[in-house]
Write a protein that binds this DNA or RNA. Sequence first.
RNA 1: GUCCCCAUCGUCUAGUCGGCCCAGGACAACGGCCUUUCACGCCGUCAACAGCGGUUCGAAUCCGCUUGGGGACGCCA
Length: 472
Amino acid sequence: MPDIVTRFAPSPTGHLHIGGARTAVFCWLLARHFGGRFYLRIEDTDPLRSKQEYTDAILASMRWLGLDWDGPPVFQSRRADLYDGLADMLLASGHAYWCGCTPEEVEAMREIARQNGAKPRYSGKCRERRLGPGQGRCLRLKIPLTGKIVFDDMVKGRIVVDAGELDDMVIRRADGMPTYNLAVVADDNDMGVTHVIRGDDHVSNTPRQILIYQALGLPVPRFGHVPMILGHDRRKLSKRHGARSVIEYQRDGLLPQALVSYLARLGWSRGNQELFTPEELVRYFDGGNLNPAAAAFDPAKLEWTNARFMRSMPPDDLARHVAPFARDAGFVDTPEERLAELCVLFRERATDLRALAQCFRPLLVPAAELAVHEKDAARHLTDEGKNHLRALAAVFRSCDPFDAETVNAALDAYVADNSLTFKQVAPPLRTALMGFMGGSHLNDTMAFLGREETLARLRRATEFADEKKSQS
RNA sequence: GUCCCCAUCGUCUAGUCGGCCCAGGACAACGGCCUUUCACGCCGUCAACAGCGGUUCGAAUCCGCUUGGGGACGCCA
């Protein structure tokens, strides 16, 4: 039996969002660091909101992030027997009772409590009525009237709650379905979960769950409540803040390991280290150093993180990641070795894979289809510029081999022999090759294009300039 | 309203037992350098211990209060 067992338990009512992903990352890291087990549980007890497509999407996002889980996912909707058994035990031991109050009656009780300035709660009307099962009756947990519930949270420290603050919560609905708190306890216990890492919004559920554990005589796991993620304005995170689902970040061209690094760093730290490979995270994350304060999501830093990962990974790996984006951009039959070369040329000029793939465009389209930036053309494809291009065409034609070094030497010689400066020659050359004043280094660009394509572009640029001239 | 939680630069954070912190790193912003474009990179600038009391020789670090923020209060999860 491994000593650390964690679980991630999303409800399939939407895609995996950034907050849930971070919780999953922490759960996964804790288990992997200690060589324990990490389970996935789908909390689909709400048939109205749960959807199969969301389950599939969440699993896909987990896989993409590299968060592998142990064993098959557990579905709460298929474990009614487990919950029924525990509910019956609670009833038999006198820790639970049947309640015949209608939802309307309960709402009225809450309203009264509210008006008295107290916490809205169930009054406990059926607590001592010794009702039996019946139509419309639910099961409630008999909460102790006095005493304190204490637990030492891994991130928040000691939390103390008065039992008197809690009301007798429903553990099984009138339709027989278990309530969240009962199902969680039942499953966590059944799965042998030792460390419950979850969102901040669950701290108030924890005392209730502890009471269930205690009523059942079950061992209480360790809890760790990570704060929620805030938007840039430190308000609750929403779509407006640029925080989206994991799937959207994937589509936008983020590297999964970059997202994981950023997410881990949001609320956790190890000295001044900013970037972590998944291996480093597993090595260093032991559940400590978690920040109890909520953190704001910063798209700019995520972008920077991603850019750093793109620049530091082997070109072959980068090429594999950028391939789908290159296909989307229309470059369907560019071989991966070719993409790897392009990655080396452009990886410092893009912060995500999608933008990187777009950078390839000028070098992958045929000369005739190269988009020419009007302003740059007007400025640099002048008569003088064209003369340079014609002369350079002759120079480059005799370059052999046609590689970056040779081409560069030829260019150097041309500038020197004619007492020119680079500033006179480079702009027209660049405009001819790229179509605008941007892009990769000239020698690398020409080496990538090869002799024929390079010459074609020089020719095409002079023709383009001639056309423009005759038009005006 | 009641209960719980939180509080260091705009943002993420470092800050182990209180002294090495007139608070360090990173992102962003701004300025500069590099430069055959655009970038990368490098250098620098701006910028914070929410407030008030206390404990102490000494507090960002401990305690209390205040303020501000968040969460929870469902037969949702």
